[in-house]
Design a protein around this nucleic acid. Structure first.
Lengths: 189, 189
DNA sequence: ATATTTAACTAACACTTGTTAGTTTCATTG
DNA sequence: CAATGAAACTAACAAGTGTTAGTTAAATAT
């Protein structure tokens, strides 16, 4: 048995379709067809299309925000904290390569949970900012535009979902190190 | 007169809505309402919803691919070529902050032009790869994983559309330099 | 064996979708 | 002034949307 519950199976199937075409372009009939059943049967297991989306997004967002707090509050230096953020993104993304697409592209279609999602994201980004700015303050990072640094790192980390699934049998540990190196030390010789 | 033709006005209006909600979630009635007319009236100026999307995406994709070719074939060193790629992205994105959202998120909804778009993108990425690999070969860049370098730079550049519109009265020249610095030299002291 | 639960089904709903046809309004042109 | 053309309109279409109601068949529990 691959899935614990039928609901999980529906969510997993939806996640794949949402990544390919986006939440709005996927119909309940599409999801049902992919599972070999009729659309109405889905409602024996889930309450609405909206519920599928928020189940996908909120659980991921909570992981990020919670883990980020742990990293921020640890007592390592700021460079090592940044490396742990990279590892966090690689870890969550490689375990949920499809769901990350919804988190990135379809969060605005959340209804009841939209506000909660925005708060999670804001908390996450604030913690990120604090780490970068402390790193500059403590002379671990170059004295530059911290907003540009955050933007650059976060853009790359958020795009992992596009890239990771293309790499079969990737050495996660090695990749995390290579990515940290590029993000932190750049590519200039 | 802000727009040359009514068609341009429809495309501009659509572009803003597509960025907010995505192509599939925006209806012809939404577009019409935003312009203060009825949906059927749009068809005096455009042939289909699909045509709006491809008008937005293809023109942008052509700019990137064409300009990339110019950069690749110039006779500067590879670091300077990379700086020019950063400038190219900042330039096109700051002039089309909304359209870039469709290019990034809704290209898969292209129908007739999908194949053409994919070719443009592939050509662009190939030229990018060649510059990075020559940079390594010529010892301008560190000897690292070139794929990770391309992924990291391109992810950041592709995300500019999210970030640039938030910055009012931004000094484009200065920002381009700061971003180049972060992407090429990293953030480590 | 009987009762209950699980998970599928068919049929239908009210509404929304992109698009077409035909008409009207009105400024510009001959 | 009459004719033209641009750009709006109303009305409608066929297909597709998420979802509900009620039913059926098979597995599980009593």
């Amino acid at each position: 048995m691959k899935y614990k519950t039928r609901k999980e199976e529906i969510i997993q199937t939806s996640t794949i379709l949402f990544k390919q075409r986006g939440f709005s372009a996927v119909t309940m009939r599409d999801i049902a067809k992919a599972m070999g059943i009729k659309a109405a049967s889905l409602y024996n297991h889930i309450n609405s299309k909206q519920e599928i989306l928020s189940d996908i997004i909120i659980s991921l967002a909570e992981q990020f925000t919670q883990q980020m707090k742990v990293i921020k509050n640890s007592n390592e230096n700021n460079i090592d904290k940044l490396k742990q953020i990279v590892a966090l993104h690689v870890d969550i993304t490689s375990n949920n390569p499809y769901g990350m697409a919804s988190l990135n592209n379809d969060w605005m279609h959340l209804e009841n949970e939209l506000e909660y999602y925005l708060k999670l994201r804001k908390d996450y980004e604030n913690d990120f900012r604090i780490i970068i700015e402390k790193g500059i303050e403590d002379s671990e990072l170059v004295k530059g535009n911290s907003e540009v640094m955050i933007f650059s790192m976060l853009s790359t980390l958020r795009s992992l979902y596009i890239w990771l699934p293309k790499k079969e049998d990737l050495d996660i540990q090695k990749f995390t190190n290579e990515l940290s190196l590029v993000l932190i030390n750049g590519i200039n010789k």
